[in-house]
């Protein structure tokens, strides 16, 4: 009788296990389906010129299609634009985010810190299209024109909460003994933070920064209101500029350029996945 009961329980256990495994596999299906689709459609467009030449005009593309040749040109203008917008956003968001996260981790019980922490969560929840339109009002209108600067402001706002959170969380999980040991040696709070706590938290913070970048690099809506787009490679920061996600949207709207969609998507997807995997790898390495 007792034996029967145990068998029953073991069977239930197995059933549970299988159910969980099946559902876990199901969640991975969309990822591989998307990857497969984009790879299949996109890989044939990838070539050296795809990364070094700017977008072709619709006329050139039309001629190429009529002649039965592959569409000339590529997404270099988008890659350059994305890099410019992103690096400006990172240069501002990383120091500000880390300082703010440090403040939140060190002053958990202060009312002000609680309010800031709450607001950070709210900012994270703001739809990106709204951040785009707000940046348009704040930056594009006063500057009298679309620009890379405006684009980077929008992305910076989106990155900040992620960097603040990861800094705060990483600092919070450091053992208290680390900070106490530093202070017990006579260091002041700032020195202990700079020499002991932040270095110890570096892995987590860096992972957070990478994830923040991968989160915003594909953002399209805020850039439509701010960077606008540009059909040639441009290095100035106060003029309209292109970005890879903007190009995908442009290609979609132009019947002659649609073939370029998949190459651009593949590039963006691989870039984001690489960032994510690097972040995961670093986080794992750091925890050892």
């Amino acid at each position: 009788m007792a034996n029967q009961k145990i068998k029953h329980r073991l069977a239930k256990d197995k059933l549970m296990l299988w159910t969980i495994c099946i559902f876990a596999t199901l969640t991975a299906v969309p990822l591989f389906a998307i990857l497969g689709e984009v790879l299949l459609r996109g890989y044939s467009q990838l070539s050296w010129s795809f990364f070094t030449e700017p977008t072709p005009t619709a006329y050139k593309a039309m001629k190429a299609i009529e002649a039965g040749e592959p569409i000339p040109g590529g997404i270099a203008n988008g890659i350059v634009g994305t890099m410019i917008i992103l690096s400006m956003a990172v240069v501002v968001a990383v120091p500000v985010g880390i300082l703010c996260g440090t403040f939140l981790a060190e002053n958990r019980k202060k009312r002000f810190a609680k309010i800031v922490s709450y607001l950070t969560d709210l900012v994270q929840g703001i739809p990106s299209v709204i951040i785009g339109i707000i940046t348009y009002i704040w930056i594009v209108v006063p500057m009298k024109g679309y620009s890379a600067i405006a684009g980077s402001v929008a992305l910076c706002i989106m990155m900040l909460p992620l960097i603040i959170r990861s800094t705060e969380e990483t600092l919070k999980i450091l053992p208290a003994s680390l900070k106490e040991a530093g202070l017990a040696l006579g260091g002041n709070k700032a020195r202990v933070m700079m020499k002991v706590q932040l270095p110890a938290a570096f892995g987590g913070i860096f992972t957070g920064v990478l994830l923040a970048i991968s989160r915003v690099i594909g953002e399209t809506a805020p850039l439509m209101f701010t960077a606008l787009g540009c059909s040639f490679i441009r290095w100035s920061i106060n003029k309209p500029i292109s970005a890879v996600p903007l190009l995908i949207w442009e290609f979609f709207n132009d019947p002659h350029l649609q073939e370029l969609i998949w190459g651009a998507s593949l590039f963006l997807l691989i870039f984001v996945l690489t960032l994510n995997l690097t972040a995961k790898y670093l986080a794992k390495k750091w925890n050892q």
């Binding site: 530093g182 017990a184 040696l185 260091g187």
Partner: peptide
């Protein structure tokens, strides 16, 4: 000086730098 229950060498510092941590922190 203080020594804690759990050994707490600073994880990002070398053995050498750990001995000198007090000076660096001051």
């Amino acid at each position: 000086g203080m020594v804690f229950q759990r050994p707490a060498p600073f994880p990002t510092m070398s053995i050498y730098d750990n001995v000198l941590a007090g000076f660096a922190l001051n």
